[in-house]
Design a protein around this nucleic acid. Sequence first.
DNA 1: CAGACATTTCAATTACTCATGAAGTGTTGA
DNA 2: TCAACACTTCATGAGTAATTGAAATGTCTG
Lengths: 115, 115
Amino acid sequence: MSDRDMKQQQVLQALSALANATRLEIVRLLVPLGEEGLAAGRIAARLGLSASALSFHLSSLEQADLLTSQRISRQVFYRANHARLGNVISYLLNDCCAAHPQIRRCCTTAAASND
Amino acid sequence: MSDRDMKQQQVLQALSALANATRLEIVRLLVPLGEEGLAAGRIAARLGLSASALSFHLSSLEQADLLTSQRISRQVFYRANHARLGNVISYLLNDCCAAHPQIRRCCTTAAASND
DNA sequence: CAGACATTTCAATTACTCATGAAGTGTTGA
DNA sequence: TCAACACTTCATGAGTAATTGAAATGTCTG
């Protein structure tokens, strides 16, 4: 498997993980918390999810390397993997979209001009 | 439905569309062609897809507003919707990831620093 | 060690996605 | 108008994703 295919494979897994309302919310919640992270139970409470539903989605995100987890006593803290998120966005912009000027413009201006 | 939810809904549909190797290839192929676009048959030949398989994926991308189509006599030309692609990337970067510095860095440097 | 707590795993069900080939639609040229 | 062309739609089936509740795992406290 070529380097490029491997990279694409990882990006596809990340996109699949992000292509779900619940998981996108999880990422939105965790990104601003940075290294602090948040315990699974807290995430579940914040988003109104059952423990097992949450666990299902967290593992999907962790498999895609978009989150990391760390057990601290009874709780498991989850953190966003900012580097990986950056990679995914960068792939879309640079590899997939060839850094097309019109597409790139959206990401360099603070608020994207829509439609 | 709030403005924000509608936007997220559209982004989710776009992410679902992009989270597939075949469809990502289609986008990669069409982005650099710009307004010129490419006839469905040509896309199929380029990517080695059956007509019906291609049509299935094209309609998924068109539903997500990532492509536009135009019939010209017998052929149907497909073009990438650069504005929408930019919106999606921008959403990931700005709305979802709160323009986190570490994530943003990946998109402002030409080649993203990986891992 | 027993019980509570925090989370994950499992099993069963339902729903969706994708591939395939056959049939259908619209368009052109003989 | 008939046949070929360029696509799309439909029907079927296989595989994968998501939801639910119950059981299992690991951890702390009394």
